[in-house]
């Protein structure tokens, strides 16, 4: 299981600051060892039902971590904990600790809105806001958080759409409704919208499962490009996808973390029997 490097995990400049520049000068060695999240003994309940059972895992910074496992094993529940989205479901209960760059995400004074600005999220079903244009969709996070400066907004608009590999396709249609573009473009629009507030982490919950293979390939390429500047955690049902895009892979099974390690190693030489059964298609 993952080597726990919690004590020495946060030498970067990011702890505490609201919106640090994503590429702070960190040495290569630091990048390898630094963890964005250090999860300790995490358990989550929906009412009486326990969905996550005592998971400990360190999620590396500036890398892509994939989470795989059969349906209902708690993948979504787990990543929604990383930006406190699970709190929206009534009667949930969390035990354990999640440190984000050394800070306790669930500390008494911690504001979920602040957490979510640093830890963004892209959902399974693309969901551009239906009343807004493409431009408004990208900028809504900034605008509603008080950014008024037209120049800043314009810069951020182009930058986010470029990063989401959508700029060339929509640059002449920025005023068109966000719902007027194709499904794959909408999902990239949602990625641009998430990137516009400049988060450090991007959580993606099956971002391609509603898309055709071509749109999926585009998003996978985009995810790999984002790797340099963001910590990415992606949930996927598609094992090829996990092996194509991720650096590390975690295998969940009925609420437990069975195995976590280097993606190539996990797929080629799984340590656990259950992992092997799952990736060779014997169950799940």
């Amino acid at each position: 299981m993952a080597v726990n490097t919690m004590s020495s995990s946060t030498p970067t400049s990011q702890s505490g600051a609201m919106n640090p520049t994503p590429t702070s000068p960190a040495t290569a060695a630091e990048l390898v060892t630094a963890n964005a999240f250090a999860v300790k003994d995490l358990s989550i309940w929906y009412g009486e039902k326990q969905a996550i059972k005592n998971i400990s895992i360190d999620i590396p910074v500036m890398a892509i971590t994939a989470i795989i496992g059969p349906s209902g094993c708690g993948k979504s529940t787990f990543i929604r904990c990383l930006n406190r989205m699970h709190e929206l479901v009534p009667r949930t209960r969390v035990e354990g600790k999640i440190l984000f760059h050394g800070e306790d995400l669930y500390a008494a004074g911690s504001d979920p809105a602040m957490v979510r600005r640093r830890v963004g999220m892209v959902f399974q079903k693309s969901n551009p806001f239906p009343t807004m244009s493409i431009e408004e969709n990208v900028l809504v996070g900034l605008r509603l958080n008080g950014v008024r400066n037209r120049q800043v907004l314009n810069e951020r608009l182009e930058k986010s759409l470029r990063r989401a590999a959508l700029w060339d396709e929509v640059k002449n249609d920025l005023k068109k409704p966000g719902m007027s573009i194709s499904g794959g473009q909408q999902q990239r629009l949602c990625i641009a919208r998430a990137l516009a507030v400049e988060p450090e982490v991007l959580l993606m919950d099956e971002p391609c499962s509603a898309l055709d293979p071509i749109a999926t390939a585009k998003i996978e390429e985009l995810i790999r490009e984002l790797r340099d500047q963001y910590t990415i955690v992606i949930v996927t049902h598609n094992m090829q996808q996990a092996s194509r895009v991720s650096d590390r892979t975690a295998f969940f099974y009925v609420g437990e973390l069975i195995e976590f390690g280097d993606t190539a190693q996990l797929f080629n030489r799984p340590r656990e029997r259950q992992t092997e059964d799952y990736i060779t298609g014997r169950f799940g």
């Binding site: 999220m121 959902f123 969901n127 809504v140 919208r193």
Partner: peptide, 27 residues
């Protein structure tokens, strides 16, 4: 109004109240 819009807005770090007024009620 589908819940996905509320979640998308909250996930951008937009407060609950602004989400209701600017996203949910606007929709």
């Amino acid at each position: 109004v589908p819940n996905g819009y509320r979640e998308a807005s909250l996930a951008l770090g937009i407060s609950r109240w602004k989400t209701i007024v600017h996203i949910v009620m606007k929709t």
